[in-house]
Amino acid sequence: MVKIVKHHVVVFGALLLLSVACASQPTTLYQQLGGDKGVSMITDDFLVNLSQDKRILHHFEQTDIQIFRQRLIEHLCVVSGGECVYQGASMYNAHIGLHISQADFDAVVGHLIEALKQQHIPLATRNALLAELAPLYQDIIEH
């Protein structure tokens, strides 16, 4: 009897492990952001938030927003491990001569976080994306 119970426990345990393993199948950050559709919607909310901020709007006076939007989607896709090709300039080259201040950068980070929240992206996913984007500071700031 004890043996049978033990056997059942083992089988049950194995099933439990399997179900947990299936439930936590590894997904890329890109998938967690909602894939193509999710990243497009995050980008659109982000752009709306940027467009409403007078502090930084002047940086976009010469910007073709359609192209900027496309590059942004590609960039977020690549950064989050999606299978895209980023066709824009490097972060460093893209910001040469724009004199992006730390205040500009902080404001943009704030708008991105807000856009992620608007799209109901969970905290852990937001933080994982910020972890990828934060080091770009060095390439974007003051040059």
């Binding site: 905290l123 852990a124 933080n127 994982a128 910020l130």
Partner: peptide
């Protein structure tokens, strides 16, 4: 440190 402990900073 972003995303350091169960997705928390």
């Amino acid at each position: 440190y972003f995303d350091a402990i169960v997705g928390r900073n």
